[in-house]
């Protein structure tokens, strides 16, 4: 249980750092990418959508962080809650479902991006290279993780 407490403390640091990094990236992109941005050419409702999405992401991240901060702090003070949290996090069926969903999900994303990139090649070069780059990135990550885990186990 002490191990879990330590892990929860570290996780809280990562959560706060992640939120600060996300807000920082959004703020810096607003300041420095303004001049080269082409969003001004978009209709009002689309610009509103982008702005709403950015606000939503920050609010969601903040809510997410707050929820986990409160949950972790309460668990660290109460041994019964801590055991329940430990069980929820280490439950073998839960971990199995997560692994299955991650693996199948990654396959679907990879094939979906490849097909979308191939189709977009007939429409627009920028879209094609964006999708092609994303597909290449996902494939690379999958290959690296495959090598890493085959060495580990």
């Amino acid at each position: 249980m002490e191990e879990l407490k330590k892990r929860l403390r570290n996780r809280q640091i990562v959560l706060i750092s992640g939120l600060v990094a996300a807000c920082g990236a959004l703020l810096l992109s607003r300041i420095f990418l303004r001049d080269i941005s082409d969003t001004d050419r978009l209709p009002d409702f689309l610009r509103g959508f982008i702005s709403g999405f950015q606000t939503g992401i920050v609010l969601a991240l903040f809510g997410f962080m707050l929820f986990f901060l409160i949950r972790n702090s309460m668990a660290m003070r109460n041994p019964d809650r801590l055991k329940k949290l430990y069980i929820a996090e280490t439950d073998e069926r839960g971990l199995f479902i997560k692994q299955k969903a991650g693996s199948v999900g990654m396959d679907i994303i990879m094939y979906g991006l490849a097909v979308a990139a191939a189709v977009s090649g007939n429409l627009n070069g920028t879209v094609f290279f964006s999708l092609f780059g994303a597909c290449l990135f996902v494939t690379l990550i999958r290959a690296i993780l495959g090598i890493y885990y085959s060495e580990k186990y």
């Binding site: 055991k83 430990y86 069980i87 280490t90 073998e92 839960g94």
Partner: peptide, 26 residues
């Protein structure tokens, strides 16, 4: 039982109905 062996209630349910096979440790 779930609390005693360190898993969730849903895991015990799944094992009982044969949807999930427990690991050797469990």
């Amino acid at each position: 039982l779930a609390f005693a062996v360190g898993v969730t209630r849903q895991t015990i349910t799944s094992i009982e109905v044969g949807k999930y096979t427990a690991s050797l440790v469990l």
